[in-house]
Simulated scan of single mutants.
Amino acid sequence: MIFKNDSLDPAAVFTCATSLRDACDQSAKLNNLNLSELFQGVDQFYREAMRIAALFEEWACEHVLFEEMCEVWPYLLEDKFGAACLQRMSVEDLKYFDAEDCPDVAMKLLLPLHYQDASRVPLDVMAINPIPASHFTHWRIQTIRCLSGDDNFEPMAYGDDPFDAEYEPSILALYGVDAEGLVEHIKDFDRYADAVAFAGKLAPGVEFPEEPVVKAQGS
């Protein structure tokens, strides 16, 4: 297989595909599935596994903060990638795996991610309020969303599916946080940079990270 993206790690792609193959084989045995029939031949199944592996590795190269990881990347993928994919969707549905599935699989792998607005991964970042006389001790930017047809917004946490069809597209909310940890909603934004800029107008000198990191709680 020739990769279109030269930055892809062949070892990572191979271990992704191997892990997915093994997970599917195990699932097929447990559920009396015939992979050859599901994918119109074993060769086509292997092509799908390689397609998914290359797609995920390409996504990971743009979104995963490898420098924040302790695990060896190909080894992690070999151990856990296939199971994470089958948590996301059934063996039968793997033919529909696309880029929108990658963030959810990445969070099932507990990967540290670089926040980007387009990826819609959940953000929750705080910064100290540099204004000593303010009621707020901190400022917080957090991803929120609501169910379709509902006006009640709720926080979106690490591990929540960013493209869950039951929800409206997520947005970013700016909050003020007082000394007791109580939050007050200030304003909503579509872009992180806009939220940071507005917080800077309210509290000149506030320092939010330029490139925030999205991590599992406790990691």
Results as ranks from 00 to 15, higher is better:
Gly205His: 10
Lys108Ile: 07
Pro112Tyr: 08
Asp93Pro: 00
Glu57Gln: 14
Glu68Gly: 06
Ala118Trp: 12
Gln40Lys: 12
Ala54Ser: 15
Phe66Val: 10
Gly41Ala: 11
Cys85Trp: 02
Leu111Trp: 04
Ser7Ala: 15
Tyr158Thr: 14
Ala203Lys: 03
Thr15Gln: 11
Gln44Leu: 06
Ala60Ile: 05
Tyr175His: 13
Pro103Asn: 06
Cys146Asp: 04
Asp150Trp: 01
Ala165Gly: 04
Ala28Ser: 11
Pro169Cys: 01
Leu77His: 03
Tyr167Lys: 00
Val121Glu: 03
Gln40Trp: 10
Leu55Ala: 02
Asp150Phe: 03
Ser27Asp: 14
Lys80Gly: 00
Val105Lys: 02
His63Ser: 13
Met107Ser: 09
Glu68Arg: 14
Cys102Asn: 04
Ser170Glu: 06
Ser27Ile: 09
Lys187Glu: 15
His63Met: 11
Ser36His: 13
Leu109Gly: 08
Glu37His: 13
Phe198Thr: 09
Glu58Gly: 12
Pro204Asp: 10
Ala216Phe: 07
Ala157Arg: 15
Leu123Trp: 05
Leu174Val: 06
Gln142Lys: 10
Glu37Tyr: 05
Leu76Cys: 09
Val177Leu: 10
Ala199Gly: 08
Ala133Ser: 12
Gln40Tyr: 11
Ala53Lys: 01
His114Phe: 00
Arg51Ile: 06
Lys95Cys: 10
Lys4Gln: 12
Tyr96Cys: 06
Tyr75Pro: 02
Trp59Val: 03
Glu166Val: 03
Met50Cys: 08
Ser134Trp: 04
Glu62Lys: 15
Tyr96Asn: 12
Phe136Leu: 03
Ser27Met: 11
Lys29Tyr: 09
Phe198Gln: 10
Lys108Ser: 07
Glu78Cys: 12
Cys61Val: 12
Val91Pro: 01
Lys108Thr: 12
Asp25Lys: 13
Cys61Met: 11
Val42Pro: 00
Gly205Arg: 11
Asp161Gly: 00
Thr143Pro: 05
Leu76Ala: 14
Ala54Met: 06
Leu76Ile: 12
Leu113Pro: 03
Glu168Phe: 05
Asp9Glu: 10
Glu180Ala: 12
Ala216Asn: 14
Ile141Glu: 06
Asp79Phe: 03
Tyr46Asn: 14
Gln87Asn: 10
Asp43Gly: 08
Tyr167Val: 02
Ala54Gln: 07
His135Asp: 08
Asp98Pro: 00
Cys85Leu: 01
Met89Ser: 13
Asp188Asn: 15
Arg88Ser: 02
Asn5Gly: 10
Ile128Arg: 11
Ile131Thr: 12
Pro204Ser: 07
Leu20Gln: 04
Arg47Ala: 12
Gln87Asp: 11
Ala23Cys: 04
Gly176Glu: 11
Ile171Lys: 03
Lys187Tyr: 12
Cys24Tyr: 02
Ser90Phe: 01
Met89Asn: 00
Glu100Gln: 05
His114Met: 07
Asp194Glu: 15
Cys24Asp: 04
Ala83Phe: 09
Met89Ile: 04
Arg21Thr: 13
Thr137His: 01
Phe208Met: 08
Phe208Gln: 09
Met107Cys: 11
Pro132Asp: 05
Leu109Cys: 08
Leu86Asn: 05
Cys70Arg: 14
Leu174Asp: 06
Ala197Lys: 14
Phe3Gln: 14
Thr18Asn: 08
Glu67Tyr: 06
Leu94Glu: 02
